[in-house]
Design a protein around this nucleic acid. Structure first.
Lengths: 217, 217
DNA sequence: TGTACATCAGTGAACGCGCGTTCACTGATGTAC
DNA sequence: TGTACATCAGTGAACGCGCGTTCACTGATGTAC
């Protein structure tokens, strides 16, 4: 009892052992906080180490380098993103149009709720594109969206996409991606008047926008 | 004659005078080259000075600091961008739908032809938002787009935008903005198969996408 | 047309900064017997 | 249950780097008379 209480080297909550035990995870958490607070270019490996309460050399035992850590954050982002799209797709039931609407909504919701991850996910200069797992997880998100577009345009599940379907896919992808970027970039802050917060935009304007994207024939 | 030819301090083409004479402009040119080659985060003021053949302290006589230079680049970008949108709008004649299509096309074309400017223009963390001229020039581009949307949705030229019109505006803006970002981010490189270069996308897919954005009522 | 002088637009050396990464190290943990 | 030893996951000091910016300076240019 006493030895525990008097044990040296406790600063805050206390770490029972010399080894951190959870450092890898905590570095990822710290990275995401930094991305949020300072933006992607404000990220530094040293700051992540600082927040995890560890020396600047410690992260090297868990990630090859700074880029390796960010790649992992982006990978986790795409995992969650893909899962969100899949869940939305399921929520759309058998109606291809609803599946698409749900996915579009989920896409924007993810971007607004996890801005740090979302923006990092598409900053290819910040991660390691030779990481096969990352590439494949990212591809999967794309496939989920493509699946709903195939259904909406009555295409078979495999084989080349017809040009019209590809155009349609691009239209949907562009609109949700563009809206997400505009919103995160603060581009919509001024215009539009009214009491519009992000929720209002999501709940009333997104459906309005999607009205303009009926599925072809 | 002789004095000119033998004049010292000529390195390459020759500068007749001690003063540079065109430094401000050349710094802007150099900045844009750097943005192109190294991306926005690869820009440094010293590198711009280096390319202009001048000491690192020289730029301070023309721009407050590094951010000031980038703000100027972005401002020039928005000027050209706004002009391109206006020209496209005029090219659409009296047909609101065509005016919109032309503007959308011009939007994407600008992004693909001037990627450095375009990406910088929307990176608010890199420029000085207290610069009134910058803000007003940026606003003007938005107004040009809004004008065509008003016409397309039979709204008066002034006064608040109806919610449906605003949704429509957001849809058009999002789609061209999103497409531009996806293309510049290399997101469309792999998928889609076929011989698709950027031109193909622009000429065949953009119209396809816009088909899905008929004007309301 | 000259001349005195103010201003302009450069130089180059120096500053302090925080960064990513490397290095030799060491105490803690896990494993084989 | 002990013990010997390999491996793991940290430390902390140090490295070299390029950056933005400041400073005192100076030669070139423009202006007033």
């Amino acid at each position: 009892l006493n030895t525990v209480k008097i044990s040296p080297r406790r600063k805050k909550a206390k770490r029972a052992s010399y080894h951190h035990g959870d450092l890898r995870h905590q570095l990822l958490v710290a990275a995401e906080q930094i991305l949020l607070e300072r933006g992607i270019d404000g990220f530094t490996l040293r700051e992540a180490a600082r927040r995890a309460g560890v020396s600047p050399a410690a992260p090297a035992h868990h990630f090859r380098d700074a880029r390796g850590l960010l790649t992992e954050v982006a990978l986790l982002g795409f995992r969650e993103f893909g899962a969100a799209l899949e869940a939305a797709d399921k929520a759309g039931g058998n109606d291809p149009s609803r599946r698409l609407q749900e996915q579009a909504h989920a896409y924007v919701r993810f971007a607004l709720e996890r801005p740090a991850r979302f923006q990092l996910m598409f900053r290819h200069d910040k991660h390691d594109m030779t990481n096969e797992e990352f590439v494949s997880v990212a591809k999967h998100s794309y496939d989920v969206l493509e699946g709903a577009v195939r259904a909406a345009t009555t295409m078979p599940e495999h084989g080349d996409l017809a040009p019209e379907s590809y155009g349609f896919l691009l239209a949907v992808w562009s609109i949700v991606h563009g809206f997400s970027h505009l919103a995160l970039g603060g581009e919509l802050r001024d215009q539009g008047g009214g009491p519009a917060g992000k929720d209002v935009i999501l709940k009333s304007l997104l459906p309005l926008m999607l009205q303009h994207l009926p599925r072809p024939s």
